[in-house]
């Protein structure tokens, strides 16, 4: 495999990872909650897309917004009903709660979907240029992932709700004094995080086999991306996603696929030691 091909593979993976992680990063940055449910949100999004395709023949690209909307509603309800009750408590409490909810979600998904991996197969052909081959479905998923991430960035920068989220993130008390309803912003942020996970999952179903047992694996990747890129900002997640995608692609070829994920984790632990704020993070901005 040529180096250029590995590079392209890494970029395709990386853009998907960025899309997966950006919501998690947002929730961590704004609510200060490590959402262990994020992996399950991704898998749930993937299953929504899979079932829509199998039972209703809906094209996977059309089910992306459907999965996103469903996860938005679920995220909003979960935050209002459960997470909001502990949002100001120490990390041990919030993390244990989301961990517990994830166990529940995992179990329900295993019962509902079974652990057998499924996948959507659409043969859309492939694109070839300069000796590099990319299947069209992967290319489309990559572009869609980048587009969604860009939309989120635009929303955060330009819209009223986005500015309110950033304000709450910077200073919760000051935001309250400015008339922002912090509770509502928390719920919206959490829902947006779930939305991005659902959308990323819907695209993932097109590229990889999916199974409820994979939620932990995706959660791990999301951790790595967020620590690599720094928290709470979109460019950081993008940078982290590309770094992880490239590391996995190159490590998979040169060190063997079983070591690709280990390299990602080692890189994350190394970066945690050297620069806990991440590549693009700012100090004193938690």
């Amino acid at each position: 495999m040529s180096e250029l091909q590995i590079l392209v593979n890494g970029l395709v993976l990386g853009s998907l990872y960025a899309c997966m992680a950006v919501g998690f990063s947002l929730v961590w940055g704004v609510l200060n909650v490590i959402n262990m449910l994020h992996g399950s949100f991704i898998v749930l999004g993937a299953y929504i897309s899979f079932f829509l395709y199998r039972h209703a023949g809906v094209h996977p690209f059309i089910s992306v917004p459907i999965a996103a909307a469903a996860l938005f509603a679920l995220g909003y309800a979960l935050q209002r009903g459960a997470i909001n009750r502990v949002v100001a408590r120490p990390v041990l409490t919030t993390l244990t709660l989301t961990f517990g909810l994830d166990m529940l979600a995992y179990n329900l998904m295993i019962l509902a979907f079974s652990a057998t991996p499924v996948r959507i197969i659409l043969d859309l052909g492939r694109v070839e240029a300069a000796g590099v081959v990319v299947p069209v479905d992967r290319l489309a998923a990559m572009l869609l992932a980048l587009l969604l991430t860009a939309v989120l960035y635009a929303v955060m920068r330009g819209s009223k709700i986005g500015r309110a989220i950033v304000a709450v993130r910077m200073d919760r008390d000051a935001a309250t004094l400015m008339g922002i309803r912090v509770e509502r912003i928390y719920a919206t942020t959490f829902a947006l995080g779930a939305l991005m996970a659902g959308a990323a999952g819907a695209m993932l179903a097109l590229i990889f086999p999916i199974s409820p047992t994979m939620s932990g694996q995706y959660l791990g990747k999301v951790f790595i991306v967020c620590v690599l890129g720094g928290l709470g900002n979109v460019p950081g997640a993008l940078a982290g996603g590309f770094v992880l995608g490239l590391v996995e692609a190159f490590a998979g070829v040169y060190l063997g696929p079983q070591n690709a994920m280990t390299m990602g984790y080692l890189l994350m632990l190394l970066l945690l030691l050297v620069r806990p704020t991440g590549l693009m993070g700012r100090k004193g901005y938690e």
Binding site: A82, T96, L97, F99, G100, L101, D102, M103, L104, A105, Y106, N107, L108, I110
Partner: peptide, 9 residues
């Protein structure tokens, strides 16, 4: 797993 999750909640 589900019962463990509910217990944690």
């Amino acid at each position: 797993h589900a019962i463990l999750g509910l217990m944690i909640v």
